[in-house]
Amino acid sequence: MFYVATGAILLALLFVVIRAIKGPTVFDRALAGNSIGTLAILLLASYGFLTGRPEFLDIGLTYGLLNLIGTFAVLKFFRHGDLAYDITDDEEKPGWK
């Protein structure tokens, strides 16, 4: 049954990668990248069970954390063109309390 899960995850990855290639905006690609990260965690988990080595889960956890930071870095870069941008420098401070 782990074959079923692994196959389904690979199929879902295929769809999401098509979306990442088609775009059309950068946010579609960032969203697809985020979903690829989630699917990669699940793929690592189910493949770990498939091969009887659940230690892959540790890699999955690390991957999830890096995926979150990576998504934020991409979004911040495309919003401000600068990874070190500090929102408190803004005059109007949008959405900032």
């Binding site: 899960a5 389904a8 879902a12 295929l14 769809f15 979306r19």
Partner: peptide, 16 residues
């Protein structure tokens, strides 16, 4: 696991 796989594929299809 089968249900989870179904929803994964359905969600990915939705993204398309």
């Amino acid at each position: 696991i089968a249900l989870g796989s179904f929803f994964l594929v359905a969600g990915a299809l939705g993204m398309l």
